[in-house]
Design a protein around this nucleic acid. Structure first.
Lengths: 209, 209, 209, 209
DNA sequence: CATGAATGAGTCTTCATTCAT
DNA sequence: AATGAATGAAGACTCATTCAT
């Protein structure tokens, strides 16, 4: 009985804590997306969330940790969506296509996430910080793609190529189109680009008959 | 007589002025690339260039103008290099290939430029500023590509597709790979990616026999 | 019956209350001694004591009152020890010696108390606050010494001097040596200093034969 | 000619810089003395000096450096005064007396310095910082005294004792009396204490006839 | 009694910019 | 043309204190 009370108490505390953190992280994404990272001061984020200035410092060790959590949230959400789509596909070619299509679909539905992401891309001071971001965030994406491509080669669906290089290329093509779309929503047609890229990478990977 | 002296004086002044501006712009690129935009204060740039704090404010209206000049310099230099290569190619397919290969070649030879560029990418506060950057800097690149593609279609070298969408896709693929390479030089093999993309876009654009 | 219960309740409450206050005061001394007063936030003290942040505010009107209680505890404990030693001495010269020796003995056994005290010494903002601290805490010490010295003069054990000045001098010598020892335990030999001061003040107060 | 101009330029620059630093350091001493270290924010110091908030940050790396410079100034000025007096004395006993008397004389003439010093005494967070302060500031004082005492022993003017311990005792007695006087100017008679201590240490060090 | 989330005032610090020399 | 001292706004962060649970 006692353990139950304690548990409830702890869960409640954790729950409130987690809810606040999520709320602040989402508010930060929204503020960054609408005002730009340089203008997204803790004061402004707090104001947008509707809490006092000190709350953020209370829940996060500092601005660095908040941004880190934003990045984590951004990638986690995207990856979860893509993975679900990819896992539903029957074979490697379809999985590759699902990866590309899901990426663009998620973009279209979550513009603020990517606007914020582009701002954060350029905010890492040192080369070392850039490297760490790449290792923590981009490597898993590339490895996911690499796995799809490699298994496709093993099954004989794909021709011979460097899975590593093609993974970087697929991810790069998606990100690069996204970048232009972030700068101006009207500059590129997301659906057309998705279709074009899906077709191109399909052609480029399939074994010649 | 007097006007001549004045002219000489002005020309000399203009020359010195221009030289100083170029020197500062190049120093800014170098500082941004090595320390990151957030750490690249005017004081630090001035220190790296080896001039006093006030010189930058003397030659530029403000930090915004300096960054704008940096962006201009970055794109101008890149575009000049690519254009020279493209113009030497005999037909549309070769011009497209030249565009891609020249892009990667220039990257490899001017890493600091692109590290700085990625930092600046994320520094535009408002959506409006992002849009303007896109219109001023990216649109010309896409239009250049679009022209190559459209003429290729007119000549019958290329199949039917949306030149606009494919231009965005080509540029996107180049930028996206560049981004990963900026984060970590060792993360991607630039030459392999260049070859892969050149081949893919060649296949994707050519008219089916 | 009821009153009895209430009384018991109150006594128990008072007892718990007092225990908590003592616990917090002692925790504060320890935290101040190890981290320094500037770093000894209520949050940190609470953490070191092992209670929640709000408990201190619950039991003390504010940080000022807590520090005041710390000062009280510091002086009370020290004075109790010294007084017990002094009262055991047979005559004025022995009482003076006992005062000095007990002071150093208590120091050696309660280092944290004095490290904390030195930090608090310097934390009184206004001249008025300094004066009040002196009146409340140092005056009693000097008066204790003054009484010893004056009675020694009345008994003919001591030569003629200003008891007030000598009291300040004795207390000063003790505190000044303590200060150096607080800064660096290895900087001074407490026992040697105690012996030296005891001897010196003995010589300086005794009536010339 | 050119070198002269340059030299003048540099000297002037250095001179202005040094003057400002001195001005700020003296302002800081005055503010600390009147308001207490905890209330002596950079904003308040700047206001008292009559300059803008940013000037202090411009001339000092941070508050820590400012306080360090205050400490340096405090000790340098005091030591210079004492040393001049001591050096004029003919032999060791007179030098010891000069040390004590000069200390008290300087105190009386520079109250703010010592009020500030007592506040700073307690502001060193970690034991390590306290140790460093002791090593940098107090050790030279004690070594000065130690030298006087040791040479007095070698000349046969002083009896046998530990110069190190007696140095700590002399310095301690001076500081401890000073402390009480800092808390309340009326609490101790500086001149009387000086005379008493000078006499006592004279008696305590002299060789018995 | 106790908790800890929330507050907002206050502090240090950085920085673009101005201006007298 | 260049300097660098000075400014003041804006930022992140700390902390004593309050209060609903």
């Amino acid at each position: 009985m006692r353990s139950k009370i304690d548990q409830v108490g702890q869960n409640k505390a954790s729950f409130i804590e987690e809810a606040r953190r999520r709320q602040i992280v989402e508010g930060a994404i929204s503020t960054i997306a609408s005002a730009g990272l340089p203008q997204a001061s803790l004061a402004r984020i707090a104001q947008d969330v509707g809490v006092s200035r000190g709350v953020i410092s209370y829940h996060f060790a500092g601005k660095d940790e908040l941004i880190q959590q934003v990045v984590n949230a951004l990638f986690a959400e995207t990856n979860r969506f893509i993975k679900a789509r990819v896992d539903r596909a029957p074979d490697a070619p379809h999985r590759l296509r699902a990866f590309i299509e899901a990426s663009f679909e998620f973009m279209a539905a979550n513009r603020a996430n990517f606007v914020a992401l582009v701002d954060i891309w350029g905010s890492f001071g040192s080369p070392e910080a850039k490297r760490r971001f790449n290792a923590d965030m981009y490597d898993p994406c590339r490895r996911h793609l690499e796995g799809i491509l490699r298994r496709g080669q093993e099954n004989g669906d794909f021709r011979d190529f460097s899975p590593r290089t093609l993974a970087a290329t697929v991810q790069g093509a998606i990100d690069g189109v996204m970048l232009q779309w972030v700068f101006d929503e009207a500059a590129v047609d997301l659906a057309d680009c998705a279709a074009e890229l899906a077709m191109m990478f399909d052609m480029a990977t399939r074994r010649r008959a």
